[in-house]
């Protein structure tokens, strides 16, 4: 039971966004879907949830083709960046209608979360700020109890307090009702402690799909003189080298081996640094 994506390609005109992507979102796992701006994260989530069409390839939800398939789409809830709720609709009505379309929705939880996030549910969508719109969309997404919940930029416009509360809510609700949650975001360090697996998109492809723990264990940096570092990184999976003066820092994603050169200094690197190096460095 999972979402399997095979050989998926999406083009907008001549512009290829996703090129022959193959990927699997397993059951009851929290994923982080990472990638630079315009790399196709939202496009991928939109294709899975039948909002836009692929050019080729296949998306299977628990073995069922996802395109125009009620059985498959009933299991998916996508909290998208764009607002698809009518502007005149009240937050309480959104919760009510989500229950109508997703019978597993926990209405009590939705109202409780609204209280926690200080959201006035009698307000209409048009009267909400960007952050508040994000909150109501997140509340219905997490309360829907959909088997596959996709959160596309779930912290857009949220302050630090609300972001912390949102991450806490994800973990708490996941513990209560395990499901597949895919979080697409740019705030990598913040979700590092929430996600179990990481999927990185770059250059229209999946460049990494691994467990966060393994990734952090395998990722490290080596610092030393340029010649020592260049020698050290030979035959290793080096993501990038930064050179300053006569010194160099290499970022590696590999099994750590002891250096014969004592002048090389090793240290762990965080998820954000790994992401930057995986997706072509800074700039």
């Amino acid at each position: 039971m999972s979402i399997k994506i095979a050989d998926l390609t999406k083009k907008y005109g001549k512009n290829i966004v996703l090129k022959s992507i193959s990927l699997e979102f397993q059951e009851e796992t929290i994923y982080g879907l990472l990638g630079r701006n315009g790399v196709g994260k939202s496009t991928l989530l939109n294709i899975i949830s039948n909002r836009i069409f692929k050019n080729s390839g296949e998306v299977l939800v628990d073995g069922e083709n996802a395109e125009e398939n009620t059985k498959a789409q009933e299991k998916i809830f996508l909290m998208s960046e764009t607002n698809l709720y009518p502007e005149t609709m009240k937050c309480s009505e959104i919760i009510k209608w989500t229950k109508e379309f997703y019978p597993e929705t926990d209405v009590a939880l939705a109202f409780e979360l609204a209280k926690k996030f200080s959201l006035d549910t009698s307000k209409k969508i048009s009267a909400l700020s960007t952050g508040q719109r994000t909150i109501i969309k997140f509340i219905v997404a997490i309360s829907s109890n959909a088997k596959y919940t996709f959160l596309d930029e779930p912290v857009l416009g949220l302050d630090a307090n609300h972001r912390a509360l949102l991450y806490k809510t994800i973990i708490e609700e996941y513990a209560k009702n395990p499901r597949t949650i895919v979080i697409s975001t740019h705030l990598i360090e913040e979700i590092a402690t929430v996600i179990e697996k990481v999927v990185v998109l770059h250059d229209c492809k999946v460049v990494l799909a691994e467990s966060t723990e393994d990734l952090l264990n395998k990722g490290y940096s080596a610092k030393g003189s340029i010649s020592d570092i260049e020698e050290f990184v030979k035959h290793k999976n080096c993501l990038g080298i930064e050179k300053i003066g006569g010194f160099a820092t290499a970022y590696l994603l590999d099994e750590k081996t002891e250096s014969i050169n004592e002048n090389i200094e090793f240290s762990k690197i965080n998820l954000q640094k790994l992401f930057i190096e995986l997706t072509g460095g800074e700039g």
Partner: peptide, 16 residues
């Protein structure tokens, strides 16, 4: 427009 968007947000397919 509005209703189509709302249905899509709630997982209803175009045919529905």
């Amino acid at each position: 427009k509005e209703e189509q968007d709302f249905f899509v947000q709630n997982g209803a397919i175009r045919g529905q």
